[in-house]
């Protein structure tokens, strides 16, 4: 294990319905809560929610950006989804060094609301 350089990184996305539909088609995440505004409007959330795996993909991309050495990747990623992110929300991912070598701290927000928290650990690429 190397002591990876972790560059503080902020990544912002505002998801559109077209993007949720496209991600649903690519991933199988076509559930009505993600792809059917009429259905979603009748739920307590009132609008389509971004697929958790779409959020996670953006988080993984942010971590990839935070690890500028191509010889270092992440070995484990743990996240808790705290609050939903809807179409039109600004999703902001903040990645920063954790309090131990190789530890990455992840927080993400929908506007001012915490949407996701997590940690990652780094590893050296072996292949």
């Amino acid at each position: 294990m190397t002591t990876a350089t972790i560059r503080p990184t902020t990544l912002r996305r505002t998801f559109t319905q077209d993007e949720l539909d496209a991600f649903g088609q690519a991933s199988g995440g076509t559930g009505h809560i993600h792809t059917d505004p009429e259905y979603a409007a009748a739920t307590p959330f009132g609008r389509p929610l971004v697929q958790g795996l779409f959020l996670l993909a953006v988080v993984e991309r942010a971590i990839e950006t935070a690890l500028p050495d191509p010889a270092v990747g992440w070995a484990e990623l743990r996240v808790v989804f705290v609050a939903p992110v809807g179409v039109g929300d600004e999703f902001r991912v903040e990645v920063a060094p954790g309090d131990a070598p190789g530890l990455v701290r992840v927080e993400a927000f929908a506007g001012s609301t915490t949407a996701l928290v997590g940690t990652a650990t780094t590893r050296e690429e072996t292949s």
Partner: peptide, 11 residues
């Protein structure tokens, strides 16, 4: 209507 609560991935 099922939604994600937690996820762990190990590479």
């Amino acid at each position: 209507g099922s939604i994600h609560a937690r996820q762990t991935m190990t590479v």
